[in-house]
Amino acid sequence: MTVAERSPEAARPGLLSALRELALVAALFLVYKVGRVAADGHVDEAFRNARTVWDVERLLRLPSELTIQHSLLGWRTLIEVANTYYAYVHFPATAACLIWLYLYRPAHYRWTRNVLTLLTGTALLVHFVIPLAPPRMLTETGMLDLGHLYGPAVYGNPQTDHLSNQYAAMPSLHFGWALVVAVALMAAIGGRHRALWLLHPAATLLVIVATGNHYWLDAIAAALLTAAAYVLLRQHRPAEIEAPPATTSIPRQRATPPAAPSR
């Protein structure tokens, strides 16, 4: 009997499991959004922390976010592409990765889901403790809000936007989630060219810095938290690349040719 011939009762446990996982992932995204709003820190403290981060990066001789942003200013199309990537790739790419893993690499799905949950929860705690204004708000440095100037814009005026916490720049979950997606697909698919999945976090890093939404240190903090999550959950990592789930079927037996009559 093939999968298509199975009774509705046999398929129901799989459907219920999928619905439970969907509800769990939806709850994770909801906690992420609600937690960011709840973690809306004091504005003065957020700007003090932002200036400290900016000064520390200069002491560490990290490339200036201003230089990266200025390299885009002569290319309006690239600015719009960067803003679009920031606005519309973050959630869909993560969701698509989780759905694919759930369908074709269940053990890698559970591992990745747990890493994302631990990373997101830890990041929200940092948002509570260290409110941080993004570089696009440090107008004295020359940084611009490219989303607001060129679109599409993700955030509104900080004074009237009550749907998001704009003072939660560190760590960057945009970069952290992109890194998890890349690691998950590298581990689940393998192959000679698996390192190409790292293009997603690399592009995300350039986008979040060039658009003025994050500092380099935001991405570094996200990378460290991601690494810590993988270390803590290392026992949950699948031992090897999984084979795609096989369809349930009963192989047909070959008909045995009749024995030759005895003479």
Rank of each mutant, 00 (worst) to 15 (best):
R252E: 10
G156C: 07
L66F: 07
A182R: 03
G156V: 02
P63D: 11
A82V: 05
G212V: 02
I99P: 04
F47E: 09
S17G: 15
A18S: 15
Y155M: 03
F91R: 04
Q69D: 00
A188Q: 03
H162V: 11
L224E: 11
P92G: 01
W100G: 06
W75V: 00
T211G: 00
L149I: 03
P13M: 01
F175Y: 15
W54G: 05
P63T: 10
Y230V: 05
Q166F: 02
F128Q: 06
V209Y: 05
V43C: 07
M1V: 09
Y85R: 02
L173R: 10
V43Q: 14
P257S: 04
Y86Q: 06
V207W: 09
A222F: 02
D55Y: 12
P171W: 04
A93K: 07
D161G: 11
E65S: 07
P134I: 01
P257L: 11
L125K: 07
M1N: 13
T117P: 01
A184S: 03
Q235W: 14
S17W: 12
W54V: 03
P106A: 02
P8N: 08
R113Y: 13
A227T: 04
P238Q: 11
P152Q: 07
N114L: 07
Y167H: 13
V3L: 12
R20Q: 14
A87T: 02
A23M: 14
Y88F: 14
A46F: 11
A96P: 06
A222R: 09
A96T: 09
H214A: 11
D44R: 14
A222L: 08
V43A: 06
L198S: 06
A259R: 15
A107H: 13
L19A: 15
E242K: 02
W75Q: 01
H236D: 15
D161T: 10
G14F: 15
W197R: 01
A210T: 14
G41V: 09
L146D: 00
P135H: 00
H174F: 13
T139D: 04
V129L: 10
V89Q: 13
V37N: 11
Y109E: 06
A255L: 12
T120S: 10
Q69H: 04
L98W: 02
